[in-house]
Each structure stands twice: as structure tokens, then as C-alpha cells.
């Protein structure tokens, strides 16, 4: 019958079906690059707002922040705006490039696969978020950067089973970085720039190079 015409073609088809039906493979590397860029811009704004430079003698951000009134904003307004800017930028970019890749691949953007991916990403992520709120509540500001990175890394490792497997290695990098920063407290913002900025850009570019360059 049909399948006997070319066995290697049949095998390729089987492989593609197995992958397409079990993993959300439309995640675009460019989403990572955009998220990384927004993270770096966001962090740069913090440095400008606080009149600080990276590795600035381990000064405490929140002590500096309380006294700053740059651009006519108190620090709470500034940080909320900055976080909103990063999140909106990263999420919009992510959705844009992933939708584009899904169209090219003929995969749906909202189906059982992407839902399963998001659930597996958000369980550790939401846990980490609430954990950080607890740290914040008790005034352990120094632990925020290590904690966010460790939980984000665990979320990526967990989600990697349902998307491109490469995400797992990014997760490991985030976990290692988070754990290291736990023993070198005081460089929270620098570590964030590396974890959410530089690692995302490197990884996004690698994935783009590997899967999307045509």
C-alpha cells in the first residue's frame, strides 16, 4: 500500500507526527530574545533611576530607592511602571513571534498542547511568585533575586517536557545562577540581568539558529 513507496519518508512522517502531537514546538527563539532585551532595558532604567552603576560596591537597592524622586516619581510608582513595561514587552513579543511560528508550522496556538505547556510552566512559577511575596512581606529583599531565578529555572525544567527539549538546559542555567547568587547576596540586579536578560538572548538566538533559520 501507500506506505511502502518510501520507508524513510514514512519514518520521517511518523517522527514528525509524534513530535507535533505531543509537544508544543512553535515556541520561537525570537520570543526569548525580545524578553531578554526588555529585561535589560528595564534593569538599565533601574540603574539610571537610582544613579547607580552595575557592581556598585554592593549598595542596597532598596535603601537607595526610598530616597529617590527622579522623574517626579517615588520608587513604588517607578518600580511598578518598570515591571509592567518589562512584562508587557516580553509577553507581547512572545505571543507575536510564537503565533508567527505556529502559523508557519501549521500548529495551533491555543490547544491541548499549549495549555499543558502553560500549566506546567505556571505551577512552579506561581508558587515562586507567592513565595517571593512572602519574602517581601517579611523584609527579606536580598533573597528575591535568587528565589525568582531558582523557581523560574524549575518552571522551565518542568515545562521542557512539553515543548522543545532545549528549554531544559536554559532551566538548569537559571537554577545554577540562582543558587550561586544565594551565596553572594547583594548583586540581585546584576544576577537578574544575566538570568533574565543575557541568558534569554543567548538561548533565544541559539534556538532561532537551530530551528528557524531557513
Amino acid at each position: 500500500m501507500e506506505s511502502r513507496k518510501n520507508p524513510s519518508e514514512t519514518l520521517d512522517e511518523i517522527r514528525s507526527l509524534m513530535e507535533r502531537s505531543s509537544r508544543f514546538i512553535s515556541l520561537s527563539g525570537l520570543s526569548g530574545v525580545v524578553a531578554g532585551l526588555f529585561a535589560i532595558i528595564g534593569a538599565t532604567l533601574v540603574y539610571i533611576y537610582l544613579d547607580m552603576t552595575p557592581f556598585d560596591g554592593k549598595r542596597l537597592y532598596y535603601v537607595e530607592a526610598i530616597h529617590s524622586t527622579k522623574w517626579g516619581m517615588n520608587y513604588i510608582t517607578f518600580f511598578l511602571l518598570d515591571v509592567a513595561f518589562i512584562l508587557i514587552g516580553a509577553i507581547t513579543g512572545g505571543i507575536f513571534f510564537t503565533t508567527r511560528k505556529a502559523k508557519q508550522k501549521g500548529q495551533k496556538i491555543w490547544d491541548a498542547l499549549s495549555q499543558r505547556l502553560l500549566i506546567n510552566l505556571f505551577v512552579p512559577l506561581a508558587t515562586g511568585g507567592i513565595f517571593c511575596l512572602g519574602l517581601f512581606y517579611h523584609g527579606f529583599f536580598g533573597f528575591l533575586a535568587p528565589t525568582t531565578l531558582v523557581f523560574y529555572g524549575l518552571a522551565l525544567v518542568n515545562a521542557s517536557k512539553y515543548t522543545l527539549n532545549d528549554i531544559r538546559n536554559l532551566g538548569y542555567c537559571e537554577i545554577i545562577l540562582g543558587l550561586l547568587s544565594l551565596f553572594f547576596l547583594g548583586y540581585g540586579l546584576e544576577v537578574w540581568v544575566v538570568g533574565f536578560g543575557i541568558l534569554h538572548i543567548i538561548y533565544g538566538s541559539l534556538m532561532y539558529w537551530k530551528y528557524e533559520r531557513t
Binding site: 500500500m1 501507500e2 506506505s3 511502502r4 514514512t10 512522517e13 511518523i14 507526527l17 509524534m18 507535533r20 502531537s21 505531543s22 495551533k108 490547544d111 491541548a112
Partner: peptide, 27 residues
């Protein structure tokens, strides 16, 4: 399984637990 459709169905089922008719049809 010497048939494209049957082999396709099996390919999807071996990597997924309990797949709906509709999802098989779309995939």
C-alpha cells in the same frame, strides 16, 4: 499498519494518553 492513516493514528497514540476523536482528526 501498512497504511498511512493507521500508522499516523498509532504515531499519535503512542506518545499521548487518551486522545479525543476530534484531536486525532485535526492532527
Amino acid at each position: 499498519l501498512d497504511n498511512r492513516v493507521r500508522l499516523g493514528i498509532m504515531s499519535v497514540l503512542v506518545v499521548n494518553d487518551w486522545v479525543e476523536f476530534k484531536r486525532l482528526k485535526e492532527t
